[in-house]
Design a protein around this nucleic acid. Sequence first.
DNA 1: CTGTTAGCGCGTTCAG
DNA 2: CTGAACGCGCTAACAG
Lengths: 342, 342
Amino acid sequence: MSTAPGGHPPPHAPTLADLAREAGTSRSTASRALSGRGYVSPEARDRLFAAAERLGYVPNASARTLKQRRSRVVGVIVSDLGNQFYARLAAGIEQILRERGYHMVIVGDNSDGVEELTAARTFLAMHAPGVIITPGAPDATAFLLRRGLPVVEVDRRMSEQSCDAVVIDNVRGGRVAVDHLLSLGHRRIAHLGVDTDWTSDAGRLEGYRQAHRAAGIPIDERLVLRIASHDPSAEARIVELLSRESPTAVFAANNILAQQAWRAIRTRGLALPGGVSLVGFDDVQWMEMVSPAITVVDQPTFELGRRAAALLLRRLEEPGSAPTVELLQPSLLVRGSTAPPA
Amino acid sequence: MSTAPGGHPPPHAPTLADLAREAGTSRSTASRALSGRGYVSPEARDRLFAAAERLGYVPNASARTLKQRRSRVVGVIVSDLGNQFYARLAAGIEQILRERGYHMVIVGDNSDGVEELTAARTFLAMHAPGVIITPGAPDATAFLLRRGLPVVEVDRRMSEQSCDAVVIDNVRGGRVAVDHLLSLGHRRIAHLGVDTDWTSDAGRLEGYRQAHRAAGIPIDERLVLRIASHDPSAEARIVELLSRESPTAVFAANNILAQQAWRAIRTRGLALPGGVSLVGFDDVQWMEMVSPAITVVDQPTFELGRRAAALLLRRLEEPGSAPTVELLQPSLLVRGSTAPPA
DNA sequence: CTGTTAGCGCGTTCAG
DNA sequence: CTGAACGCGCTAACAG
């Protein structure tokens, strides 16, 4: 009799030992039967499965992790779960992980290096099989790598040492955006970027420069604005740029900045694209819904997440192989917010 | 000498036993020192902390969970991480959890009952201290409750048994939206809802009915449309409703339906709000950016997540208390998409 | 094909 | 205040 008298929450969750007793086998046979590896006679197997069913057996993940020194829960660190970009990235990661029998524990650092390191420690403590991170600093990656945990950097690369990564071809994205504007005849193109040392933004800026260089057009550095991530005066600063420097076009290097630029343009009372043209980076919902719709460099965000997860899982299977960097291509969606300058 | 010769990934992560050896104490003393509970002399304590620092000791979470029969990782199940609503909800949950030293493992079922149950089993296996769920069916909650795991249902209540929950006052939200339209003079108001048995949508529909009843206006049931979650013909069906029934206003009961309604209105070539008025539910970015901006019943999504997490943590501290249901109030944001009928 | 044995790393008695 | 001893539930040897 192992069921509780009242039928209420049983005294303890059934363990392998309970199963074994019920089925008249040893614990190891039960283990082999349920985990699928190792030989076990069909009859014993059936009895064990029946017992598992009857008792509502659920294997204890911690015990398994303790023994195997590796869990099935991969760690994920993103800058900000509230941002659509990171949310979609996470959704992509989660999808692949779940398909393959893994799970994810996710933490949002707020682009804060200390939080990143704390999360890294946690993942180490949990014996995560690996970690996927949108790094804000190189430290967390370095820490994990040093301790032997596989890391995939996604969206940007921050690690000094080489590790797996999957990123967008940001230089190309920036290049394509600005080429588009230049070909429309723009010569005073503002660049709105984030004030970080992220490779993503650096790449987009580099693309901006390359495009100018290729066209033989000098860059007026007063048009290049760097705005901190949660700067409350962002919109005001863009308004000011608009009025002081009179750019004929604006390239906003992420979806937040694009939104702020869009607002600033309204605030300033400029017509779009009549008064100024706007190109964004990272297509999000509103960009297609406003009128005119926003021309944008689209990036495969969901796919970025999927690839990162797939890459991590691959490394788990082949630990030896050389670090891989996957480069995903962005694509320009020309919509109504860009036109030749007045 | 316990450091590895090459300084490369050490043979194994340092354990409490290593610390104890380094500091010349026993394992249990080391345990007490690091976990903070239990007596230990200051000198021993210092030596142990120093050793921990030096060796880069990180406690093994699985071992701890195994021993204590409870992890620090709460399970979270949401319908769709890619939907802004759920993403913000998750962000709220994560914030509170992290503040309090917990983490979250999140899975997106696609409103699929089987996936929900699978996830529930996983959380049970992981010995999660509790689970937060946006339920699509009552089964997962029932399963977890039966096994003694605290559950908080969020956004909608599906459980037959009573359990903690935090939801929006959806009846009120629907009521307020439709009252607004009625007071503008609308008499033919379409209702767009999801084809599920979720209490959230049922509540909004109930609010719609209440408002009509209170105003003494009969409802033309042909104006009440139910659309399945990922119905590809959603927009087409709305277009059809628009042309066949000629409502003067539309109440779309979630952000997806609002978007589809907005598109349908454009497709149909109707002026907004001249040809038809539109009220949404759940304020998202684009609603404020399009023109005219969309009148909407706003709900505190992020706060919903925070409350759910806080409620779960409270229950962990006081397991005995009666189930709590928190009701958060929505608020109507009147914008440009509503006006008196032509 | 199966059972016995021996830990995985930690927290928690219980003597000292 | 400290250490010795045990067990959480599972799996990986190794005999049989």
